[in-house]
């Protein structure tokens, strides 16, 4: 098989496997469908140009790392959080919005959790989302965030505590009572 065909075949598989995940990631963090489409286009164009740089075992993490940078370039400071909140309250645009609307969730309890997430520091919210919304194990999160696996575990633990505190404030209870000791272990979804 010619080198060009191999490249195209690998890209095709990459696209088939991960387009939906990247699209979902972009939708969650973009103000509307069009902006998400732009992010996805940028991610997969970068992937095409750098197909040889993408590690086999970390394809999705690599793509999400690119998406994260694209989004960061497109926003500044608090604008990103504002967009997330806006996304949560804004209906999808017309046109091909049916795909998106079918996937949207408007549950009130969920809304409270998202609001609490929105009050967290951006880094805390991001790592929680990567672990739960994107369902990434620690090693993959480390690739996206460009940090060590240990750092992921520590940051995730702290982020959970902060979210728990935020939720407790809302409900007026003590909420999450996990110890804050750094000796806490993090064996969960680390591969």
């Amino acid at each position: 098989m010619a080198a060009a065909d191999q490249v195209e075949q690998r890209y095709r598989l990459l696209f088939e496997r991960h387009w939906r995940r990247v699209f979902a990631y972009a939708l969650r963090r973009s103000p509307n469908r069009a902006a998400a489409d732009d992010v996805v286009a940028d991610v997969f164009l970068t992937a095409w140009r750098r197909i040889g740089d993408i590690p086999d075992d970390y394809e999705l993490a690599w793509l999400l790392a690119v998406a994260r940078k694209v989004l960061a370039n497109a926003s500044r400071g608090d604008a990103r959080r504002d967009r997330l909140l806006a996304r949560l309250h804004q209906a999808a645009p017309s046109g091909q919005a049916a795909e998106v609307e079918a996937a949207a969730d408007d549950d009130e309890a969920a809304e409270q959790v998202r609001a609490a997430l929105g009050r967290l520091r951006e880094a805390d919210a991001e790592i929680l989302q990567l672990a739960t919304w994107e369902r990434l194990p620690h090693a993959q999160i480390a690739v996206v965030l460009e940090c060590t696996v240990n750092a992921v575990a520590i940051r995730l633990h702290r982020a959970r505590q902060r979210l728990s505190e935020e939720l407790a404030k809302e409900s007026g209870t003590t909420g999450h009572n996990e110890p804050t000791s750094p000796t806490h272990s993090f064996p969960d979804n680390t591969p």
Binding site: F15, E16, W19, R20, R21, F23, A24, L27, R28, R87, L88, E99, V100, A102, A103, A104, D105, D107, A109, A110, E111, V113, R114, L117, L128, Q129, A131, T132, W133, L163
Partner: peptide, 15 residues
Amino acid sequence: LRAANPIDEGGLPMP
């Protein structure tokens, strides 16, 4: 948190 995911990936189309 998973329940608060605003976009259910399963509801999105495949390529």
